Amino acid sequence: MPVKKILKEHETSMKKCVEYLHNEFKGVRTGRASTGLVDNIKVEYYGSMTPINQMANVNAPDATNILIKPFDPSSLKNIEKAIKASDVGLNPIAENGAIRISVPPLSEERREKIADQVKQMGEAQKIAIRNVRRDANKKLDDDEKNKVISEDDRDHAKKEVDQMTKKYTEEIEEHTKAKIEEVMTV
Rank of each mutant, 00 (worst) to 15 (best):
Asp141Ser: 14
Glu170Ile: 05
Pro104Ala: 09
Glu174Ile: 08
Lys126Tyr: 03
Val103Phe: 00
Glu123Lys: 13
Ile180Val: 14
Thr185Ile: 10
Glu160Leu: 15
Glu174Asn: 07
Tyr168Asp: 02
Ala157His: 01
Ala115His: 07
Asn146Arg: 05
Lys147Pro: 03
Tyr168Thr: 10
Ala157Cys: 12
Glu181Trp: 04
Val148Cys: 01
Pro104Trp: 03
Asn146Lys: 10
Leu140Asn: 15
Val148Met: 11
Asp155Met: 11
Gln117Leu: 15
Thr176Lys: 01
Gln163Ser: 12
Met184Trp: 04
Lys179Glu: 03
Lys158Asp: 09
Asp142Trp: 00
Gln120Gly: 06
Glu109Arg: 10
Lys138Ser: 14
Lys147Val: 09
Asn137Arg: 13
Asp116Cys: 00
Asp141Met: 11
Arg134Lys: 15
Val148Ile: 14
Lys167Glu: 14
Lys145Gly: 00
Ala115Glu: 02
Pro104Phe: 06
His156Gly: 02
Glu123Asn: 05
Thr165Val: 04
Lys126Cys: 11
Met164Gln: 15
Arg154Cys: 09
Arg130Tyr: 03
Val161Pro: 03
Glu112Ile: 12
Glu112Asp: 13
Gln120Leu: 01
Ile149Gln: 08
Val103Ser: 04
Thr169Asn: 02
Asp116Ala: 14
Asp152Met: 09
Met164Ile: 01
Glu112Val: 12
Val161Asn: 06
Lys159Asn: 08
Lys147Phe: 11
Asp142Tyr: 00
Val132Trp: 00
Glu170Leu: 04
Asp116Trp: 02
Lys126Thr: 07
Thr176Leu: 04
Glu108Ser: 11
Asn146Met: 09
Val183Gly: 01
Arg110Asn: 07
Val186Pro: 09
Asp116Phe: 05
Asn131Gln: 14
Lys177Phe: 01
Met121Pro: 08
Lys177Cys: 01
Lys159Glu: 14
Lys158Ala: 13
